[in-house]
């Protein structure tokens, strides 16, 4: 018995030996020379050197500006009011009335503030394409100058309402913004800002194409079904922090690879089943074949 096994194994044993020894030597050499192999347990110090990591995922700055400086408000130029008026009469007055007093078809805009008008016009939601459904973002019909002129005209009719905010991203903090975003915004816009459907044909839109000013305007004015966050709910600095985090979400660190639209387990499940199991079943088809 033993001699039978010896004979069988002797045939395999010979040529394998040098390969095996070579592999072992190479492997141990690699381990011995491996850089900073001693560091293993993570800590909270954030000392990247501990892990030998040289990647570039360090993102943004921790710089925190003085409170309130992250957000300033735009002063509109009164000289543009006549130009704004002509644009308004041409494009908006048919529904909102010549002096923005509102009609049966559209609401009164007086006293809503420049930020409200600016948000609706600059995101292309106004003029409205189809009054029966929720206004959607589309390319604006106006240039920035034209939009500001309309803003100036409407806000000149009646005082009140928030002015157009201007975000200084250099003075805002995305870490504080994350906290505010997850508390106040994620419930509708999802934690990744991808947006989702609310009840009765209402949608919380994706935030990825909104500009800093538009995000701040939306927070302050609460367009459509969105709640309104005034200065006593969210301070100017908090709005700036929030905007910085939303801007981060437009192009977040996707260290894991393809992001699958940032909609979470739904797409992940489909990929797992269709791509993962699917390709393995094809491999199985190759290996196992069909019934013979």
């Amino acid at each position: 018995m033993s001699s039978w096994i010896s004979r069988k194994l002797a045939k395999i044993n010979g040529p394998l030996a040098p390969v095996a020894v070579g592999t072992l030597v190479a492997g141990f050499g690699f381990i011995a020379l491996y850089p900073s192999a001693s560091s293993a347990q993570s800590n909270k110090t954030g000392n990247l050197g501990n892990y030998g990591y040289t990647g570039s995922y360090l993102y943004g700055s921790n710089a925190q500006g003085k409170s309130g400086e992250g957000l300033t408000y735009l002063k509109l130029n009164p000289a543009t009011i006549p130009y704004g008026q002509s644009l308004f009469v041409e494009n908006c007055a048919s529904c909102h009335g010549v002096s923005a007093q509102g009609t049966s078809r559209a609401p009164n805009l007086q006293g809503l503030g420049a930020a409200t008008v600016d948000f609706w016009v600059s995101t292309g939601r106004m003029p409205l394409a189809d009054p029966s459904v929720q206004a959607v973002q589309k390319p604006s019909r106006f240039t920035r100058t034209q939009t500001l002129a309309i803003d100036a005209y409407v806000s000149s009719i009646a005082p009140g309402g928030p002015a157009i905010p201007n975000v200084n991203l250099g003075l805002s903090n995305e870490s504080a913004g994350e906290s505010l975003f997850s508390t106040n915004c994620a419930a509708c816009h999802t934690i990744t800002g991808a947006g989702d459907a609310l009840a009765s044909g209402v949608f919380a839109p994706s935030l990825y194409s909104a500009t800093s000013t538009q995000i701040a305007e939306a927070v302050r004015t609460g367009p459509g079904n969105m709640p309104r966050f005034g200065p006593s709910t969210l301070s100017d600095q908090q709005v700036a922090d929030l905007v910085k985090y939303v801007n981060y979400l437009k192009n977040p660190i996707d260290r894991g690879g393809i992001a699958l639209g940032h909609v979470g387990p739904v797409t992940e499940g489909f990929v797992g089943i269709l791509v993962g199991l699917g390709s393995l079943m094809l491999a199985g088809l190759w290996i196992g074949g069909r019934a013979k």
Partner: peptide
């Protein structure tokens, strides 16, 4: 779940988990 979705125009609160309104 936390019912955090407030639709201001329709004055409704929506639950994000199973869409109770």
């Amino acid at each position: 779940c936390p019912v955090g979705l407030y639709q201001e125009l329709t004055q409704q609160l929506l639950c994000p988990c199973h869409q109770s309104l």
